[in-house]
């Protein structure tokens, strides 16, 4: 479980995040939703320490992350897998080298064991026979999968995904969502996913946190989200005309 308490982030005097507290539950897909620019990416980067929060605390299974020193944080980070908005694969390395990279840096496995582990992760994301290709030769959806494989290669306890299906067609997006959700349950990971895609919310949102203008606007499950009274959330959920018409028909 990851516990965030009263997180504040200020950029040039502007409060981008204001006093956000939330618990992300273990073994579940926790979704952070909100408009573009609402602060989702900044929120995630503050939790993992890529940005320093100005106030507040973050606990990884009761371990106080904010007050840790550099070496202790490094240890926690090795328990974190992260999927970036643009995949962030290393351009100069092949698919295989990308996935194997964390193992090469840290593990004491033999080369055979590393390859075995790499291939099993690539199989897990349904990629085969592309080991020797470079990221530049892959489609957006394949890159995301490779990035997922790289994120899980060291058996993380926590998985962070920033807009895992941005730039993908709805069908591929669904495949990626399901993949993340399956992996979360399979390995009992605490997963946090940033998204503005209502399809993802309805498909895999076990716990949903709505961020509006840098504040926590709402928190609940995907079942509750459709009959919320929160105006801002309603605005977000039924943003498309299609959704609005359906809502008008059903109520």
């Amino acid at each position: 479980m990851i516990k965030v308490e009263n997180l504040v982030k200020i950029f040039n005097g502007v409060k981008v995040l204001e006093d956000i507290s939330v618990d992300f539950e273990k073994g579940k897909t926790n979704l952070v939703i909100g408009r573009s620019g609402s602060g989702k990416t900044v929120f995630m980067k503050c939790i993992v320490g890529l940005l320093e929060a100005d106030e507040g605390a973050v606990f990884y299974d009761n371990r106080d992350f904010v007050s840790m020193n550099f070496m202790e944080r490094k240890q926690i980070r090795r328990e974190i897998g992260m999927l970036f908005q643009g995949s962030a694969l290393f351009d100069s390395l092949t698919v295989e080298e990308n996935v194997m990279f964390p193992l090469n840096m840290f593990s004491n496995m033999t080369p055979g064991e590393k390859l075995e582990r790499t291939n099993s992760c690539l199989r897990r994301v349904d990629l085969a026979d592309i080991n020797k290709l470079y990221p530049g030769e892959l489609s957006g959806g394949m890159k995301k999968r490779v990035a997922i494989a790289r994120a899980i290669v060291e058996n993380p306890r926590y998985l962070f995904c920033d807009e895992p299906n941005s730039g993908l067609d709805p069908k591929t997006a669904l495949v990626i969502d399901d993949l993340i959700s399956e992996i979360t349950h399979e390995f009992d990971i605490t997963t946090v996913i940033n998204t503005h895609d209502m399809n993802s919310v309805m498909e895999i949102g076990e716990k949903v946190v709505f961020i509006h203008d840098g504040r926590k606007g709402w928190e609940g499950t995907r079942e509750e989200i459709l009959d919320t009274a929160d105006e801002n959330l309603n605005d977000f959920v039924f943003a498309s005309n299609f959704a609005k018409k359906i809502k008008a028909l059903t109520t």
Partner: peptide, 9 residues
């Protein structure tokens, strides 16, 4: 990619 390296520790 630099953030990704940092995240790997």
């Amino acid at each position: 990619q630099i953030d990704a390296l940092e995240m790997m520790g």
